[in-house]
Amino acid sequence: MDLLNLGIRSVFIENMVFAYFLGMCSYLAVSKKVSTATGLGIAVVFVLTITVPTNWLLQELILKENALYELTGLAVLKGQSFEFLQFIMFIAVIASMVQLVEMVVEKFSPALYGALGIFLPLIAVNCAILGASLFMVQREYSLAEATVYGFSSGIGWLLAIVALAAIRERMKYSNVPDGMKGLGITMVITGLMGMALLGLSGIKLDFSKEKKSKETAQVETTVQQNTALTELKK
């Protein structure tokens, strides 16, 4: 149940965009239409769910101190740590996973490829992907936690970009000052959306007492509804 807790926390409270500013480049650039934003969002969820556990395996089996020694049994490697290679290995894994996902999707689901195709290469340099892997190492997650974390932070990112795209579509009808058009107003909107999600920061699901959990869940849903409402009003 900790996993559910972690999942909800990474979607709403520690949202990639609103709390850590990750993946902002594509978040700002591809949020003009809801349909394309959804496409990119789904691609990010896809890639995050695959790369975070892969990088976890890489970190635990190869890069960590003594890990390679335990794997191969070579005496030379005893006490050696390859963590300084972390960045370059992670980015290589991400780039090749993106390529692999692209090939697999193209082969097995041409329709999905048509929808995601152009976005996949973009994702290799999306900070959210590398950021999630680095956070996963820093917070010492287990494999299951890493998988849940990857998936749910992807969902959080998807939520953010789709919400922003929906607001920006409506913005055509508002009279924004010239200098504020485009990037400026988008940043301020993001700030306001972040403020709405800030209201969720104390939530912790506790499943040890079943009765309590129901109450918390109820509070959760009401708060969610409230947020959705405020966003709709905007």
């Binding site: 504020m180 485009g182 940043m187 301020v188 700030g191 800030l198």
Partner: peptide, 26 residues
């Protein structure tokens, strides 16, 4: 101190800067 401040401050800096250079995004 929270992320919200960063978004809004940057938004305002962009506003000031673009008003000075006269750049308008469509």
């Amino acid at each position: 101190v929270t992320s919200v401040g960063a978004f809004i401050v940057l938004g305002l800096i962009i506003w000031v800067q673009r008003s000075r250079t006269g750049y308008v995004e469509h």
